[in-house]
Design a protein around this nucleic acid. Sequence first.
DNA 1: GTCGTCAGCTTGTCAGACAAGTTTCAAGCG
DNA 2: CGCTTGAAACTTGTCTGACAAGCTGACGAC
Lengths: 241, 241
Amino acid sequence: MMSGKLARPPRLSDAVSRQIESWIREMGLAPGTQLPTEKTLCERFGVSRAVVREAISRLRADGCVETRQGAGVFVAQPSVAAAFRLLGDEARSKGEIADIFELRCLVEAGAAELAARRRDDEDLGRLSAALEAMDEALLGADGGSENGAQADDAFHVAVAAATGNAQLEHFLVFMGRQFSASRVPTWNAAGLQAGRAAAAQAEHRRIFDAILARDAKGAREAAIAHLSAAAERLGLEPRRP
Amino acid sequence: MMSGKLARPPRLSDAVSRQIESWIREMGLAPGTQLPTEKTLCERFGVSRAVVREAISRLRADGCVETRQGAGVFVAQPSVAAAFRLLGDEARSKGEIADIFELRCLVEAGAAELAARRRDDEDLGRLSAALEAMDEALLGADGGSENGAQADDAFHVAVAAATGNAQLEHFLVFMGRQFSASRVPTWNAAGLQAGRAAAAQAEHRRIFDAILARDAKGAREAAIAHLSAAAERLGLEPRRP
DNA sequence: GTCGTCAGCTTGTCAGACAAGTTTCAAGCG
DNA sequence: CGCTTGAAACTTGTCTGACAAGCTGACGAC
């Protein structure tokens, strides 16, 4: 069968795309940031434009960047469509988004369960830090919209990290980002006043308590409850899992 | 802000890559099949080689095809690395594969649970058909390696389909394909003789019975048991979820 | 029959050019 | 002054032609 990998010739475009991707990742470039022009990249890497274009093409396929003719290359803001582009090709309907949310819910419930089993003190520190940040946003009344949403994000990431499974963490961070915009109406002024933020925080604390107590089943149920409520806040039909 | 999508100029390379992808998908081209040469594709689509190359570059990024300099473009056989390339960049270690497997296990357990809740008669038909096919492969003694592995795949797909969640199904089909090679040693002659196939089949039947009885919890547990056993057959450390 | 060689084909890369779209900025107008 | 308008510069999208690097298969020497 001879399936051993026998040193194929390296492709320049692969090296270039990896380099650019690590730029974006390591420098933490925000979505919308413009990257250097193709011409600049050609000079910087010492390759032809064809190679740079092929590298960018790959990044575009990955959903890392998007190009606008006449404007330039920009860091893409992850979208649900981009996330699942490789699993289908067309635009997303509302029902499909609900399906994607259910998938995410399923993974997050499992993650909470694993986190309860495997968390260590460092994980607890990150979790409680995120909780405190959300508490501050709750008390801070009006201005804390962004902080609250960010802390919300950080909490979910901390849960994923506590599983000790880097791939699971990657996947959840990735999926979570798709829904980051959906967290804003919970943490803006209107959400704070309407009690949506407080409700979300109560759900978070239930998850935290269960993870703290190493209560795997409780963590799962709390996560499901939280995400079901979140789905309702999003206006998605709550398909009970 | 004007975030409405305002009819961006279509890209030729996108159209070409979609067309080629649908060829592969609809015609069911087997991994290793050679695609037409770039020159041929240029003539067939009436575009320049740059466009065709960009389209192929995208397909390569998706893991649909692979190119070999001097030889041609070939339909790729899915690999674990390709599956998660979008979540990281380097080659996969054994530990990372274990993490990916755990993630898959988690989703599959949830899928079994949902399938038990939502399955209809048509779903049951597909499930039992796959089960019967595996039974045949078990009895057929030696020659049925491929058939058994295929039926195994079909069973998992049928479980995913029974959830009624197309996205979940897509995701599981996608993940399942990555591990398709891992099913062969269970269903080849050695696996049949060693009883690995029979063991897997027993695990499958447990899942089926639970789904038939609409026993969500039982289905979850059966799925976890099956995938834990599968992980062990793969030689991965069994991190009990 | 076996082995080496070589011509032909395919992909990888390069270079230059034009088309199409965007951004910028200054001139012109109310 | 504020606003529109239009040209110019810039950027990506596409085309063309060419050569390098690597593979394949056939042909001839042995």
